[in-house]
Design a protein around this nucleic acid. Structure first.
Lengths: 136, 136
DNA sequence: ATCCTACGATGGACAGGTTCTAAGTCAAGA
DNA sequence: TCTTGACTTAGAACCTGTCCATCGTAGGAT
């Protein structure tokens, strides 16, 4: 993720301690935090960081394509830093855990033109639902 | 949809005028109202119906599997009474409109066993995103 | 090294969507 | 008809997310 910081600096980002901490929180595999969870974890390192800053930074990361916004349920959005390899999500209906998964085919390819109703379809998000081994 | 009322009564539901009106509002094809829209339309028939009752009833219908909850993008959830015929959703990123669509393949079939991580996967929800003709 | 200043951070107000609570009402079984 | 607990109500509370005015500071200029 430190090359994320490099990329951002290369794009003219002013590198502040707040942005660094948010990027560090999102570092790591299989992480799907809500904005509030990111804020809580960031605040452990930088207690005075504000929620607005976390929202701003996450929004910028999404706009830059470095992070993906995932709406797994009607509740808070989750932020997925694994933006450079296309994937979908497997969600446990019991505990809410999210795993990245890789279907065999691109789901966009399976929506025929006559089922697009004139829409310009740009992406397909698949949420597989079921029970994880612990909850089953 | 009147057999919906029958099914609900059969499951021990107390049949109130409020629940009847909510079920009637959801009747019909290609309907994807928000809770607030359901409330507005229900209130045309039953002016004193409260928002809480609409939310309660919608939640119960979802729990019973009679209605599907569709999470659009940070906006209000939409409620889809077409729960008995498998389909997916096409959402306009501009205005939030939802259309039912039918992909050529069952997306569940495209998640290989080694990508299931021991989960018991029961369903796949696909949300296609793009711009509708008016928003494009 | 210090100064400037535009960009970023802050926190508090605000808004939309949803859930909760306490009190009153009524469907349906006895 | 009576009784009772499930249902409804209004409004407060809550959660997620955005906006605003003000303050602070990163990083280029000097």
């Amino acid at each position: 993720m430190s090359d994320l910081l490099e990329r951002l600096r290369g794009r003219g980002w002013r590198m502040t301690s707040q942005r660094r901490v948010v990027a560090e929180v999102l570092d790591g595999d299989h992480v799907h935090f809500t904005a509030d969870e990111v804020h809580t974890r960031a605040a452990q390192r930088l207690p005075e960081i504000s929620r607005a800053t976390v929202y701003n930074t996450l929004g910028e990361l999404v706009a830059l394509g470095e992070v993906i916004e995932v709406a797994t349920d009607g509740r808070a959005k989750r932020y997925d830093p694994n933006a450079h390899h296309p994937h979908q999500h497997l969600v446990c209906s019991g505990c809410g855990t999210v795993r990245d998964v890789h279907p065999a085919r691109d789901p966009l390819a399976d929506l025929p033109a006559e089922e697009r109703f004139g829409f310009t379809v740009s992406r397909a998000e698949v949420t597989y639902r079921g029970l994880c081994p612990s909850c089953a």
